[in-house]
Design a protein around this nucleic acid. Structure first.
Lengths: 364, 364
DNA sequence: CCCTATTACGCAACGCTGTTGCTAAATTTT
DNA sequence: AAAATTTAGCAACAGCGTTGCGTAATAGGG
């Protein structure tokens, strides 16, 4: 648990991170933009910009002539100044991506994992894949770390896989610790869906409000971005969205309850009725909107992306039907901008976020 | 929107607030406790404690002899150093409470409101009630402000009542602004359920994790405390928990959808089957746990508190049944510790929280 | 009884943050 | 060429927590 004391160093990191967020979102920016966004004085912004420039994280990119007066220097992020590796560990596959500081995916590769793979087998696959991906020497020196997104339950704070669903060999595995030793890089472990929503948030920057990522891929899960950070819940177990009851008299689910969103959806999907399956998901999404009042909903997951338009249309329609009463209740619904890479890319961005994102103060 | 720049003044407020939170939770505390909780050095804590003592917010309350060495000074919060008024505006009644800095309710009074009351009528009732409650002169001088909790939809950021359900005369009323003028005190406006969960959080202090307040009182709503702050959503509209679908083939709800938690619950309750009604709510609560992974669930609301044990038993049972698989997935379920006063008291605590709570930095 | 070890606590100097006051540079307009 | 305007930085400053060190208050041992 990275714990930060509220001393002056916090201010440094915080304000630098806000400028970085601006650079990620806006392609180019100037000091005056930063002044407005941060509330700092121009002089303070000059100092922050000078520090970031010295670190090679941003650089001048021309000037803008405003008409009268001295032209303003335009800055931009230096995307290839830092990289991170992201890994999406699924039941049968390992997806690795290389992501730069701007959130752009440079390489993406999928490799099969042995059935019922062990931690050791995963570590080996990771090492091989990462090695191949960072062969270029300028990448290797700028690698910030490795992010791993996988199915839960797991303990994010302690980097512990508690009991990955459907995988033997994965009970209380301190994956973060052993991976850091094995790979020689900082490792960040999180639930797949949480990594996924982080990807969307990191790329959208400050304009991204409360949001959810709906993922349909061997089960239905939800990742949440609330109040400017990922929401993991009290035990890193938030997101079991597929196991919310939507049909009190519905069929029994593997979880023991009746009429879970997941079982109702799967029955429709298995029967080939994708539209009905999509409408079930749409009901769940509107439930989330009612409960959490989200500004963005992102759809993702292999099973969903096989029929993206069907799901998108159903959700959009349901959201609009529900929100028709109030013009101020707007929610943007979209397919994941990163496609099948969301989880892996998000895991990578979580690593970047730890270094260059807005620092969090000690837990209340 | 109170917006704070990340300069040194932020540190001052932040660290002071953490000490105050400790004092609220722990009755008494010493410097060494603060050192541990905040991560600050003993010297820094001395400065913070000195400032708070000078402001009269905390005071020494004896010493603790540890055995060898100079005894440690024990401090305590000064509860009656500050007060706030809380108002719970319902469809027919106005409940006012006087709350001190420790979160203790000193006075509570309910008065009827005219049918379909107007903003002016509410303001008059507020003025009269507040005057009666602050007759003592030491209270009046230490009054921090007035918090108002009421049904939505409303806009918390702008202090605007958009369209209170079931009340004509309440469309786009800038209640915060006009109330501040009318009462001559700072006013904080929020949804009833959000105020309610703030009451629980403020009283529990740092030990309070992600939580929800389930309120059953002319409708079913939910207030959320996530990541150390109230969750209001993108448009202050979070909490419409009663309008989440739990029965796809259920009866049509006033909101237009079928099988909402609220209509299903109400049908059972109206039929006199409280146990079934309670089990419906329990299903909804477990849905929340699956989605958000909460550490605390608090039950409240006039309709619920008519049969508190029935609801509590049903929810506890459902939560335990669902979490039986994992011993680490613990959620505490309880009835509101403040009974019928939760909303009003929470509204008051929101005012105190603005002054003496942990400050929030500019929105990301 | 005095001395020492131990613990609590504060004064003074310091480092680092953003802020304030003012100057310099670069450009357009007159 | 001179004035006006906008951008940007240097220098001194205020305020935060930190570091170094001295002082006060207690218990226990000789």
């Amino acid at each position: 648990m990275t714990r930060i004391t509220a001393d002056v160093r916090f201010l440094r990191g915080y304000n630098q991170a806000r400028v970085m967020a601006l650079g990620r979102t806006a392609r180019t920016f100037e000091r005056s933009t930063v002044v407005e966004a941060t509330g700092l004085t121009p002089q303070a912004v000059s100092k922050v910009v000078a520090r970031l420039t010295a670190d090679g994280l941003i650089r001048p990119a021309g000037v803008r002539r405003t008409g009268i007066g001295k032209p303003a220097v335009v800055y931009e992020l230096v995307p290839d100044s830092r990289y991170a590796i992201g890994a999406h560990v699924a039941r049968r596959t390992l997806r690795l991506v290389l992501v730069d500081l701007a959130g752009t995916v440079h390489h993406s590769a999928v490799s099969p994992l042995p059935g019922d793979f062990t931690p050791e087998q995963l570590l080996d696959a990771l090492a091989v894949g990462i090695d191949a991906m960072t062969s270029s020497s300028d990448v290797r020196g700028r690698l910030t770390g490795v992010g791993i997104g996988m199915i839960g339950p797991l303990d994010h704070a302690h980097g512990l896989v508690r009991d990955a669903h459907g995988l033997r060999h994965w009970h209380d595995v301190p994956l973060r610790e052993i991976a850091e030793k094995h790979l020689g890089l900082p490792v960040h472990l999180d639930k797949d869906v949480t990594a996924g929503i982080t990807a969307e948030a990191w790329r959208h920057g400050a304009t991204f409000g409360d949001a959810a990522l709906i993922m349909i891929e061997s089960g239905i899960g939800g990742g949440f971005w609330l109040g400017g950070t990922a929401h993991r819940g009290a035990h890193t177990n938030a997101g079991e969205f597929g196991h919310t009851v939507v049909d009190l008299n519905g069929p029994r689910c593997v979880c023991g309850r009746h009429g879970c969103l997941e079982i109702v959806h799967n029955q429709a999907a298995d029967a080939g009725d994708i539209d009905r399956a999509a409408r079930v998901v749409a009901v769940g999404v509107v439930n989330l909107l009612q409960t959490l009042d989200l500004a963005h909903v992102v759809l993702a997951g292999a099973d969903l992306l096989r029929n993206p338009q069907a799901y998108l249309a159903a959700v959009v329609e349901a959201v609009q039907a529900d929100a028709r009463r109030a013009d101020w209740l707007t929610t943007k619904v979209a397919l994941s901008s990163l496609g099948a890479d969301v989880i892996a890319a998000g895991a990578a961005m979580q690593v970047l976020d730890q270094h260059y994102g807005v620092p969090e103060l000690a837990p209340a």
